[in-house]
């Protein structure tokens, strides 16, 4: 029998779907019977989803420009002769 403590201990693997079938089945049974654990599971899953759904913000132009300039300077010190063009973009 799975307790709430057992469920919380296994929650990470359950969210990642890496539990073995027998454990998974026992955990699934537990959340159908325990509203609190169902809420914790559901809101944890939504927490992960909401973060995964966020694209990284565009880099501020000056930050990108300073990076490319630093790279050009580095290329010079390393003896790289090619132009740092972004024509391939």
């Amino acid at each position: 029998m799975v307790t709430c403590k057992d469920f919380l201990r296994e929650l990470g693997e359950y969210l990642d779907e890496t539990t073995d079938p027998a454990t998974r089945s026992a955990l699934e049974k537990h959340i159908t019977e325990c509203p609190n654990c169902w809420v914790v599971f559901d809101t944890c899953k939504k927490t992960i989803q909401v973060y995964k759904g966020m694209d990284p913000q565009p880099l501020p132009d000056p930050v990108h420009e300073r990076l490319m300039k630093a790279l050009e300077r580095k290329a010079v010190t390393l003896g790289v002769k090619e132009d740092c063009s972004e024509a391939k973009a």
Binding site: P56, Q57, M68, V80, E82, C84, A87, A89
Partner: peptide, 16 residues
């Protein structure tokens, strides 16, 4: 030594 190629890699991953 192709800096333009590396710049493309930079463009792909700089935000992340």
């Amino acid at each position: 030594g192709d800096l333009a190629a590396f710049s493309e890699l930079v463009r792909r991953y700089e935000r992340r």
